[in-house]
């Protein structure tokens, strides 16, 4: 398999403090890769740098091309999409406008059929169709996550990056989201999944990385990581503890 995304020795300084220290990882085409780690380890920083939202040094190669100097919108146009931790929806616009804007780059480059994909998104998220005319700011937490995901899918991503998709969601909704991730993988979308919910992430992923205080400290197949005593102790935490107690 080919590496769709290769991150090599990525460093990010945020207000003069190093937020990411020479982190390296790869995502193979068609695979799901997860990055797990505690709060403040630099997971969001990593995704921000890959998206070009934060200045960084080191190399990011995507689909065979170096991304240095490529602005965020051009990365989106190439199919690199992020569903951020804070969702970043357009609260004062309707649900449908949020989705339409998801296809902004495609429409701008003359894809006339982009709006036909709205139907596909609504088929996947019937809740969004019910609320199509409602303002995004009035949605509940679960609906927001669906809208954020739907908006990203409107861009036809080749590599979808998800930052804490289960954050603040009810277990049932988390289950739905992970079903969608599995679906997308079957449809050939590569996924980079950043999670604190290590258990859920490791179940759906092929490979995983552990990011701690800005550094990759462990990597391996998802199964290996799930069996690693350190990962169990730190990230599958409570479960292992109670099982052992």
């Amino acid at each position: 398999m080919n590496a769709l995304l290769e991150v090599d020795a990525l460093r990010v300084f945020y207000r003069k403090v190093e937020g990411l220290h020479r982190a390296s990882l790869r995502v193979e085409e068609g695979s799901v890769v997860t990055v797990i780690g505690p709060n403040g380890a630099g997971k969001t920083t990593l995704l921000g740098a890959i998206m070009g939202l934060l200045p960084s040094s080191g190399a990011v190669r995507y689909a065979g091309a170096e991304l240095a100097g490529v602005p965020t919108e051009a990365r989106v146009a190439r199919g690199l999409c992020l569903v951020p931790e804070r969702r970043e929806l357009f609260g004062e616009l309707s649900v449908e406008d949020n989705l339409r804007l998801g296809a902004f780059q495609r429409v701008r480059h003359g894809e006339r059929d982009a709006m036909r994909d709205l139907a596909a998104i609504y088929a996947r998220f019937p809740r969004l169709e019910e609320r199509r005319a409602q303002l995004a700011g009035t949605l509940s937490g679960g609906e927001r996550q669906m809208l954020a995901l739907g908006r990203a899918l409107m861009a036809k991503p080749r590599l979808l990056m998800l930052d804490e998709p289960s954050l603040g969601l009810a277990p049932r909704v988390v289950r739905d989201i992970y079903h969608i991730i599995a679906d997308l993988k079957r449809a050939g979308v590569s996924i980079l999944l950043v999670e604190q919910n290590a258990r859920a992430a490791l179940q759906v992923a092929d490979r995983g990385y552990v990011l701690e205080t800005g550094q990759i400290t462990l990597e391996g197949s998802a199964a290996e990581l799930a069996a690693n005593p350190r990962v169990i102790e730190s990230y599958l935490g409570l479960a292992a503890r109670s099982a052992g107690a």
Binding site: E73, R86, E88, G91, L93, A155
Partner: peptide, 23 residues
């Protein structure tokens, strides 16, 4: 228009706008 909405989107959420590819 999509461009008009893109302007409103930028006003509402700058990061969100960049993430959907509005320069």
């Amino acid at each position: 228009s999509l461009y008009g909405k893109a302007l409103r989107a930028t006003a509402v959420n700058r990061v969100g706008a960049r993430l959907v590819g509005i320069p």
